[in-house]
Design a protein around this nucleic acid. Sequence first.
RNA 1: GGAGAGAUGGCAGAGUCCGGUUGAAUGCACCUGACUUGAAAUCAGGCGUGGGUUCAUACCCACCGGGGGUUCGAAUCCCUCUCUCUCCGCCA
Length: 430
Amino acid sequence: MLDAKYFREELQQTAERLKTRGYTLDVEAIAALESKRKTLQVRTEELQSERNSRSKAIGQAKAKGEDIQPLLDAVGDLGSQLETAKAELNTLQAELQQIIQGVPNLPDTSVPVGRDESENQEISRFGEPRQFDFEVKDHVDVAAALGNGLDFESGAKLTGARFVVMKGQIARLNRALTQFMLDLHTEQHGYSETAVPYIVNHDTLFGTGQLPKFGEDLFHVEGESQDKIALSLIPTAEVPLTNLARDEILDEQALPVKLTAHTPCFRSEAGSHGRDTRGLIRQHQFDKVELVQLVKPEDSMDALEALTAHAEKVLQLLELPYRKVQLCTGDMGFGACKTYDLEVWLPAQDAYREISSCSNMGDFQARRMQARFRRQGAKKPELLHTLNGSGLAVGRTLVAVLENYQQADGSVVVPAVLRPYMGGLDVIRG
RNA sequence: GGAGAGAUGGCAGAGUCCGGUUGAAUGCACCUGACUUGAAAUCAGGCGUGGGUUCAUACCCACCGGGGGUUCGAAUCCCUCUCUCUCCGCCA
């Protein structure tokens, strides 16, 4: 969420910056609502103030044993006036809230302006796509040749489309990847391993920005009744990890907070019907190792570079070719002010595909969830900056390993760094 | 699942029965100043969060787990939800 004060005072400028990410703000309508709000709020608070002083006077009179009836009569219809004003103000503020809660973050000034992903900028490449002297199979066929290690039929039977059952060495490889990533980030990159709930409440989802706008992307847990608290499955560990700071004021010395967690991620993929229907690329459930940092504002841009490098390190150690892309203004996510995507080379698709997205959210999420810190000796707490990135999406990493490490005889070489996690196994055979 | 107790500021802990000048006593922690060569101790003062009006100073509003209600007035009364603790039952 943007700062409400800044939003209304620099409305025109805000609108212009939002335009670069393809978001149009109805400046005139908002300005009109805003001026109404101002009048109404001042009026309402005046009424409240008057009610308070009259009530106080009644209390004092009563304490002195005076007759309070005249005072009670003098109150008149103040109560009903207040009630009307309050109701009107509430409606108006709800309207303004809804608008500002739906406004995406402002892109950092360093972000290239562009309409969509075609205008993203490649920053760097690592590794050379391997030359194959045989016909490359995609990961689905590679796994099939290894004894039905990716069983989509069973996934469909047990649950439905976009679910999979992993078996044997493939299942183990999935686990090995997860373990390897967690060990790397905790032992080499200074993150604290964290185990979090996979089901969260709606305050939590509001905090990171999934709600109220993107509820259709989530799986919701059916509540028992309307009053009971509504819960949803997490679409990423970013949600529980970042919300650990919700409604907290951290000590300056506690920063930066660096957290990592392995969780399954659940996404409804509403609006992706027909896309990536084959294989593991787009599942309703997949494993991911997430990186989250909570930092001081002046540190967040450096932290983004570092966090992205931590995710890159996974690909480098796995010796998977990838490229680093900076998203343009039009392609960034709702809460991000700057984002790098990492795209891994998939030989069967002859293309680079997203395997990690690392974003600096600035104070956007922190404001929504009142996640703050206090500088030493300072009176006022300040909003934190929050960052997150995949380090990495395990399912897609599995795809990349299967495709890039396949051999002519149908076997798959186990990347060297994973062998300790595979009981020393160096090749997976059918 | 059954029975009971509770939720107050960074922490501890009054106030809640009997509603009123209580944004909230007191202690600890913390900050500033005095004393001191320095520190400790002592003394004096300060010390919650969010929002609004304002160039500013300042003033005002809201908040005692969340939401709703009663009332001129609610931390205090009523309803409801959530969470925590104790006991019983069940269970990985």
